[in-house]
Design a protein around this nucleic acid. Structure first.
Lengths: 236, 236
DNA sequence: ACTTGACACGAACGCCGTTCGTCATTAGAA
DNA sequence: TTCTAATGACGAACGGCGTTCGTGTCAAGT
């Protein structure tokens, strides 16, 4: 095959392939994360998806950690907040937490970045500003508000991270159904607890069912309410 | 070099090198984890420390995740608990949490395993049994006790994990001093927050100092008290 | 028309977890 | 005592990873 001059109606052979850019890389990364999980998210995999080599990515992203943080902030962008209403701060804070939890849950594996990240991305800032505004306008002491925001964020991320571990385990066992995974997994734990010597572990054996309740949503809300009620109690 | 019959005064060339065993591998892993961090903990590194090849480890440990769980349970063994005293359950639970947090902090990087692990190791069981006994004997409803134990454990592990990230960042910057790291790192964040446009982020700009308070101990206790007070409120 | 600078990227480095097949040692059976 | 079977040790290799280096290419500015 000999080379031929480019025909004039075809400006350049390049436009066939979309231009590389940070935004494109980050979006691609998120797509891979959602579809195949954190373990599958590698620089090479992202490059492959964009039909290029891994080295090309480093012009737009300084390393994998930064890519993860960028993806994380992109996810945070999905969280919407209302105008703060000081009179209803408890409800609003609760709804914010639930919404965040839902969004993180949708992109299960990003939670690892959530735990690691220092809130400096544009969306992290937006959400921090929102929470602070809500609590301060409700009359909370600035230090209580700061610590409250910090602890609440940690709790949300922590729960999401724990959830993502289950997701990863599920995928590594080749299962695709959330329901059947939970049943088999929780079942195993239940059986194990039940098989323990009752004289050494009377509580664990007696309260297996409560301890292994698989309703993650209920657990999350339970801890959330502990935190929020505690914050409210300190405002009086 | 031709081979020669082993001289009778030397029973065997082997005893020079300590026998491999799961316990030895796990202890070695913990030592590396403490000294060099999670990133440095690889099967190869453990094998090297034991003067052997990585393949040798797999006779005693089925994979790296299992090794990490075993190390984690070994660490949990350092946590000591008292006989439950139902009348002082709040104080005891608080002390348990502080002690756990201290122990996890001593082995900073293990916290990642703490978030991932399902509590099935002997020490995890022991501690779970303790917490449940404490709350149940104090008269708490079994479901509240289970959820409380679960949320509290998540909170402890989550905070420790967050702390370990800072530790990792510190090490990756070649610093060895906790103090100077915190100063430089928190200083950077402070500067960044202060440089934000005040009309878009009035709260963050105004309350920089509260938001970047570097006292990790105080933050931990703050959230801990929110949780415990919330649990107490539900018992009345 | 020439220079310059930014981007693209093939190739390679040094890691990683894990598996396979082989070898030495040992415990038990004959 | 001799043979056998099992066990543990481990060298070598596979297929992956993040990241860097040096070269190539092309478009914009002069």
């Amino acid at each position: 095959m000999t080379s031929v001059p480019t025909p004039p109606w075809r400006k350049s052979p390049r436009p066939v392939k979309q231009q590389l850019s940070q935004a494109l890389i980050v979006e691609t990364g998120l797509r891979i994360l959602d579809a195949e999980g954190l373990d599958a998210l590698s620089m090479r995999r992202v490059a492959q998806e964009l039909d290029t080599g891994p080295a090309s990515l480093y012009a737009h992203v300084s390393n994998k950690d930064e890519l993860l943080e960028l993806i994380y902030d992109l996810v945070l962008g999905e969280i919407e907040v209302r105008e703060p209403d000081p009179a209803n701060w408890k409800t609003q804070l609760r709804e914010y937490a639930m919404e965040s939890h839902r969004v993180l849950g949708r992109h299960a594996d990003i939670a690892r970045a959530a735990m690691a990240a220092v809130p400096t991305g544009p969306n992290a800032l937006r959400l921090g500003e929102y929470m602070m505004a809500l609590l301060i306008s409700a009359g909370m002491d600035p230090r209580d508000a700061s610590f409250g925001v910090d602890r609440l964020s940690l709790y949300i991320a922590g729960d999401a991270y724990e959830g993502s571990q289950h997701y990863a385990r599920m995928r590594s066992k080749g299962m695709n159904d959330r329901e059947s995974y939970l049943n088999s997994f929780v079942g195993q734990i239940k059986d194990y607890y039940r098989s323990l010597p009752p004289e050494r572990f009377p509580m664990l054996v007696t309260y297996v069912d409560e301890l292994t309740d698989p309703d993650g949503e209920a657990r999350f809300e339970y801890g959330l309410d502990l935190l929020i009620d505690g914050m409210a109690a300190r405002m009086k």
